[in-house]
Structure formats: C-alpha cells, structure tokens
Amino acid sequence: MDLDSFNQIINQGENISVEFKSSEVRKESLAKEICSFSNTSGGVILLGVSDNGEIKGLNQNFNYEEWAMNIGRDHVVPSVTPIYSQIEINSLQVGILEIPKGSNKPYQTIGNKFLLRVGSTNRVATQAELMRLFQQSGMFHYDLLPVENTTINSLNSSYLSDYFTKYNIDYTDESDDERKKLLINTDVLAEDGSCTVAGLLLFGLKPQKYLYNASISIARFKGNLVGDELLDKQVIEGTLSNQIDISTSIIKNYIPVASRIEGNKRIDITDTYSERTIREVLVNAVVHRNYSISGSRIRIFIFDNRVECISPGRLPNTITTEKIRYGVSYAVNPVLVKFMENLRYIDKLGRGIPMVCSDANKIGKKVEFLEIGEDFKVVLWL
C-alpha cells in the first residue's frame, strides 16, 4: 500500500471495509475482525492506529506478522490467511492486515460465533443471514426447501404435462400416486407432498401467493437518476419462464434508440442490445438470485443512458465479478438450473455472460457487474 492510499483510508475512518486496532489488541478481538471481514466482502485492519485514526505505531520488538497469521489459522474456522505488510508514517510503523473476501464461508471464531461486518461494527449473524452464508458455500440449497401450505394442486397440470411429454412421459395418464412419485423424484415436490421452491417457481399456478416477491419489477425513468420522473412501472409475476419472456419484451420496447424517418420508414441509426442479450441477463437474474431474501424483487431500472438489473443475493463464495466475464459460474439454485436447462433457457456451459459481454463489445457498449451489499447488479450502458 502506498502513502496516498494509506492516507485515504485513515481519512475516511472506520467503515464496512476498514478497522483500526491498537498495537495492544487482544487475540480474540482480532479474530472477530478477521472472521467478520471474511464472511462479508473482505477488508483492511490497520494495526497501531487508535479508533479516532491517530497513528500510535507498533512495538518494534514484536513479530506482528507471525502473530496475525497464527490468529487467522488457529482462532478462525475454517482458517484464514491474511496478507500482512507494514508502512512507516512519521518514524512509526503501522501494520496493514488485508483480509480477502472468504471463499469458504461461513467462518466462525473458536468461540463458535458467526460474525458479519455491518457498517463499522461486527455483529452475530441472524438465522436468515447464516442460512444465506451456507447457501453461498453450496452446503445448503434454498430451492429444494418445501413451501408451506402448498400441495400438488398448487401446480399447473398443463405446464407439467408439456414438460414431461418431452421425455415421453404422459403425465395426464399417470395415476395420482405415480404423479406424486414422479414429482418427488424430480424435486418438484418435497417428500411431505408440498411443492419445493423450485417446483412452485417453475410450474406453479400462482407462485407469488406463497413466494411474495419472487417477481420482477420494471421501472422506466425519464432521465438518468432514480429521482427523475417515473414514466412507467410494472410488476411481472407468474412462473420464471413467463417472467423472463414478458420482461424481455418490455425492456426491449423501452430501450431508447435514436432513429430517423426515411420515406415511410423509421430507420434506427444506433446499434442497441439484442433480445438475446437482454434475455440472458434476465435468465441469469432469476436463476441465480437468492430466494431466501423474501423482502426484495428483481428490479429493472431503465434510464436514458443505461439499464440496470438488480438481483437479490451476493455472488457465491468462489465467484467474483471478474470471473463471471470468462464463464466461471456456480449454481446457487441447482434445481432451478436443471429445469431451466431442460426448458432450453440455459445450456450450463457458462456461455451466457461472456456472450453478453461479446455482444456489447460488438456494438461499442459497456457492461458492468457490481456486488453492492446483498445485491448483484448488471449495468448495460446505452
């Protein structure tokens, strides 16, 4: 870290990714910081700096690097390997401990506390937050959970019949027991006979009756800011395939395209995103969103200069915003992925996002991928 970067961190103070610790910090306290940063988005711990940002320096007769490495190894489970360096400020040494975003979440202290970084403090993860951490790690799949108060009658028989016909199974001619067995074996129903989250989202009669915000909200603004005039807003519900198909058409119609009139025809004079590109962004959003975050929909904001697709849920542990550009992916909802592949919406070859980037490059546009809090955002610049 150079001096300018260091001063910038000191000036901004403690926050979600920065913590100040004195040279006398206890092992348990440092372990909590390492754990919380690893469970969130990573961060930097400055050793030898007081809470108010005053530089106090380190004890020159103590090996802070070895000490910090041992804490990451012995006091956090699974172990964490920080990156340690030092910088000299006004003849005083300050330790810089960089904690990467964890790839083996969830992490806990040896005192069995799962901690998260919230603002400039740490707190114990709630049950819902802990569930999301396990989901990111692949140890738990929310789309397999049963949905309360649902039965086989909550499903659309016509959708199921069309789907299984492709596999030479006449769903309508099967007995009730055979239908139930078939749906349990394909993860549409849970063992207790209720619908799984995936089954309801793919084949439900009214999925949003039970999964309230499993839908897409589309808003068109006049301008480039959320505070600008709202021209239109729609909420698209139904099964995932219906949401994708309807939303693709709406977005395509709303994207502004410069044109001119020649004779009796309107001629587009700027290239814009293809329907295939828009569809892929939507498929990625509905398949990989975190459905355990029930208080938020997928949001599509259409501005004059960009389209934003915001999906609830962080990227899985081993995935970064850079890796997805090269086709690296991980199925947060493997049952949804399986069915969407069978329904020809995806091919599981990891080509979707690279295709979006390639299509954007061909028309001279830029695509951004951002992880903001508990959301993942794709920005298609117009």
Score class of each variant (00 low, 15 high):
1 M>K: 01
1 M>I: 06
3 L>R: 14
6 F>W: 04
9 I>P: 02
11 N>Q: 11
11 N>W: 04
13 G>A: 04
14 E>Y: 05
16 I>Y: 01
17 S>Y: 00
23 S>L: 00
26 R>I: 05
26 R>P: 01
27 K>R: 14
33 E>I: 06
33 E>Y: 02
37 F>R: 08
42 G>V: 07
44 V>S: 04
50 S>F: 01
51 D>P: 08
60 Q>W: 00
62 F>Y: 09
67 W>V: 10
74 D>N: 14
74 D>M: 09
74 D>R: 10
75 H>Q: 10
76 V>I: 11
77 V>D: 08
79 S>G: 13
80 V>Q: 10
86 Q>F: 02
89 I>M: 11
95 G>Q: 06
98 E>L: 04
102 G>C: 07
105 K>E: 06
106 P>C: 11
107 Y>T: 13
108 Q>V: 08
110 I>V: 15
114 F>T: 12
114 F>W: 11
115 L>V: 06
118 V>H: 09
125 A>N: 09
127 Q>W: 12
128 A>Y: 06
132 R>K: 11
135 Q>K: 10
138 G>H: 03
138 G>N: 00
138 G>E: 00
143 D>Y: 03
149 N>Y: 05
151 T>V: 08
153 N>Q: 12
156 N>A: 03
160 L>D: 07
162 D>Q: 11
164 F>V: 10
171 Y>F: 15
177 D>Y: 11
180 K>I: 10
181 K>E: 14
181 K>R: 14
186 T>Q: 05
187 D>I: 00
189 L>D: 07
190 A>L: 02
190 A>R: 03
191 E>A: 10
195 C>Q: 02
195 C>E: 05
196 T>A: 02
200 L>N: 08
207 P>Y: 02
207 P>K: 00
210 Y>M: 01
212 Y>T: 09
214 A>M: 03
218 I>V: 15
219 A>I: 14
221 F>E: 04
226 V>H: 08
238 G>V: 07
239 T>F: 00
240 L>F: 12
240 L>E: 01
241 S>E: 14
249 S>A: 13
250 I>T: 07
253 N>A: 14
253 N>P: 04
253 N>Q: 14
255 I>D: 05
257 V>M: 09
257 V>L: 11
264 N>M: 05
265 K>L: 12
266 R>I: 15
266 R>M: 12
268 D>S: 13
270 T>Q: 15
274 S>T: 15
279 R>N: 13
287 V>N: 06
289 R>V: 02
289 R>P: 03
295 G>F: 00
298 I>C: 02
301 F>K: 03
318 T>H: 08
322 E>P: 03
329 S>F: 15
331 A>P: 01
333 N>Y: 07
334 P>C: 08
335 V>I: 13
337 V>H: 13
339 F>E: 00
343 L>S: 05
351 R>Q: 13
354 P>D: 02
357 C>R: 04
361 N>M: 09
364 G>Q: 02
366 K>A: 10
368 E>I: 01
368 E>N: 10
376 F>C: 04
379 V>H: 03
380 L>H: 08
